[in-house]
Nucleic acid binder design. Structure first.
Length: 279
DNA sequence: ATCGCAGCCTGTACGC
DNA sequence: TGCGTACAGGCTGCGA
């Protein structure tokens, strides 16, 4: 569920809570598969005794850099949530892994669907898959975006969701950006005009910026929705124009919004504003 | 290169 | 109310 704005929100809150400077005294693992490729023992040996020096983000990964050149990547996937707790506080059944700090507090990972992943390694290359540019990297200009689009025959929405093409965009913000740019989700990516590519570039940044400003998007109120640190909810849902609003009127033209499937993902758009599949 | 599908899990919403 | 089914914001691996 979490996309770039949601992960960025969590990262900022981790910093604000004072995660930097903590030293790992131990690791608790209730669901070993969260570690993918490491046993709990091997994982613990990588982190124990190390101090957290930097808390950052790359794509949808939370990155913790530790003393001695070790890094930890956390991917929240669909339902991952982080929260701090006193060591003695009771554990929820959905808590799959936690760091124990020397000060007695714990950073706990609550993950209902258990898709989330924690991975530790000395190099970022070993930690992260191939990832496209960060949408807010100054080097990621509209020119770069256009160059990356060329030769891409896939549907534009599929491309926006491809983390190797562009990092951080997920289903919500892809739909919102395409509506903003007035582009049909199934348009062939290399068929966009110069102006359309520029509009999409701006739209992606605009919807992500709004998402961050509103601390992410939380929908509904079940246990499977995005929550910020400590279970707080993001406020961006009220700004969404099309996502999961099929059947309701388009905020721009009033026509009923529709839902289709593109690349096996639910896709929401306005059949009037976002018209042609082909230029 | 690109596509579709299964799989990883559990909770929620909806139809009957 | 209960039960079955579809669906979910992510990603990977596989075969075609």
């Amino acid at each position: 569920m979490p996309e770039l704005p949601e992960v960025e929100t969590v990262v900022r809150e981790l910093r604000a809570h004072g995660l930097v400077g903590r030293t790992v005294a131990g690791v608790g693992v209730a669901w070993p598969r969260v570690l993918v490729g490491d046993t709990p023992g091997a994982f613990t040996r990588k982190l124990r005794g190390r101090r957290i020096e930097v808390v950052g983000r790359r794509a949808k990964y939370i990155l913790l850099k530790f003393s001695g050149g070790m890094s930890l990547a956390i991917h929240l996937r669909m339902t991952g949530q982080l929260h701090f707790a006193a060591r003695a506080a009771p554990r929820d059944v959905h808590e799959t892994i936690w760091l124990v700090f020397e000060d007695g507090e714990e950073l706990r990972f609550h993950d209902t669907r258990k898709f989330g992943v924690w991975k530790a390694a000395a190099s970022l290359d070993a930690l992260l898959p191939e990832l496209g540019p960060e949408p807010f990297d100054p080097a990621f200009t509209v020119k770069v975006f256009r160059e990356r689009l060329s030769g891409q025959r896939r549907a534009i929405k599929t491309l926006l969701l491809d983390q190797a093409f562009l990092a951080g965009v997920g289903n919500i913000y892809a739909d919102e950006a395409l509506w903003d740019a007035k582009l049909h989700p199934q348009r062939r990516a290399d068929g966009l005009t110069r102006a359309q590519a520029a509009a999409l570039y701006a739209a992606v940044r605009r919807v992500l910026t709004a998402g961050i400003a509103n601390n992410g998007t939380s929908l509904g109120d079940g246990a499977t929705n995005f929550a910020r640190l400590e279970g707080r909810r993001g406020g961006n849902a009220s700004t969404l124009k099309v996502f999961r609003r099929d059947g309701q009127p388009c905020p721009r033209c009033g026509v009923e919004l529709r839902r289709i499937v593109v690349g096996q993902r639910g896709t929401h758009f306005c059949p009037r504003c976002q018209r042609s599949k082909t230029p």
